[in-house]
Design a protein around this nucleic acid. Structure first.
Lengths: 205, 205
DNA sequence: TCTACATTTGACCAATTGGTTAAACCAATA
DNA sequence: TATTGGTTTAACCAATTGGTCAAATGTAGA
């Protein structure tokens, strides 16, 4: 259960804290549990990070930054808009599958303390990350490849919604799928192609 | 702040608890805060509901049942599949707008304790609520109105994803929208028509 | 080896929290 | 009016929790 003994204490604390916070949320997490998982004394947590709040903020930003970086990278692939969407959705699914507990944790904590989002944005600088995508979409609109009424903002949120929601609503979808005689895992697998097709069908002229 | 003094203590407790739990989550909620909001002594909470766990479960199921009932009702409207989708999306948006804090609360608590979902399903009996929709979709497929490759399960999840996610990701979307020079409220308003069109475009033959 | 400094620990603390209890209150009824 | 039963309260409790502190341990350089 304890992390690699080779790493220094500070890194072991961060790893352990990420795990415990992601599993239990800020309010549900216990400093003692983090200390145990890191294999150190509880006082050492405060030696390195002063308080639960500061430890949480540091860990939250580290984890969120890592995952968002992966998310954003998938935006920067080359190709037609349809190819981009396909690649983008596939990459997101893989990333999400490897970090299944992250979405509900992230959105819950952000909702509890929206200031975290400001701090995350400051670290990510994704202000003009979407500029290229925006330009490309306008071009493909003019070329008659995609519908005139497509709105970049809504399109982006739509893609993310379709990718992320199944992980947020995992227990709900699990229940519904079993009603239909399917497994949740199978549903996720199918979704890799379904979502891309769904989006493409909805925007192509 | 305190609820209607006319109501009996039990109901006042339920209302107050719903509010406090929805705002802070189970772990973040305090029995004292619930008692204060209900205008009663803390001991009375235990007199009526024994423990925090039992109070939470009762309140959670009451609130979730009420909202899911509204959700499901929107499924049972008459009309073509396109009309249904339009009506369905619009009704959901209104319901969600009135219960903005519910989605993130609901999915977080369900994620923390999936057994709640089982109990909710048992109360709702929505096993065969979707049968009609399923049949209608197959018919419209045969009639060549919608695409052959449409899958009811994915379509349903897609619709819900597109409707619900903007409420779960509120602070995130708020941030992104302000980058684009738009307000979150405006974005939600636009979405009423955008989502329906998006879905319809993606499934029509 | 001695010293200075960072690291780590066990023991401890004050505050908070969910929960209990015995007594008080109050309305109905005999 | 006296009694009974449900309702409500103040006071209290044990356990947990985030956090502190002085002492111990390790370690690199003089």
């Amino acid at each position: 259960m304890d992390n690699n003994e080779e790493l220094n204490a500070e890194q072991r604390i961060i790893d352990a804290a990420a795990d415990v916070f992601e599993e239990n949320g800020f309010d549900g997490a216990r400093m003692q549990q983090i200390a145990d998982k890191a294999g150190i004394n509880k006082a050492l947590l405060h030696y390195y990070f002063r308080s639960k709040d500061l430890l949480f903020e540091k860990v939250f930003l580290i984890v969120a930054e890592r995952i968002f970086a992966g998310f954003i990278k998938a935006f920067e692939e080359k190709g037609t808009i349809f190819q981009k969407i396909e690649l983008f959705v596939t990459k997101h699914q893989e990333l999400l599958y490897k970090n299944r507990r992250f979405p509900i944790f992230f959105f819950n904590e952000i909702s509890r303390n929206p200031m975290l989002m400001k701090k995350l944005v400051a670290k990510l600088e994704f202000n003009n990350r979407f500029k290229n995508l925006f330009i490309q979409l306008e071009e493909e609109k003019k070329a008659g490849i995609i519908r005139q009424d497509v709105d970049v903002r809504h399109l982006m949120i739509n893609i993310v919604s379709l990718s992320v929601f199944p992980y947020i609503g995992r227990p709900v979808i699990k229940e519904i799928m079993s009603d239909f005689g399917f497994s949740y895992e199978q549903f996720l697998e199918e979704r890799k192609s379904v979502v891309a097709n769904f989006v493409i069908n909805s925007i192509k002229a």
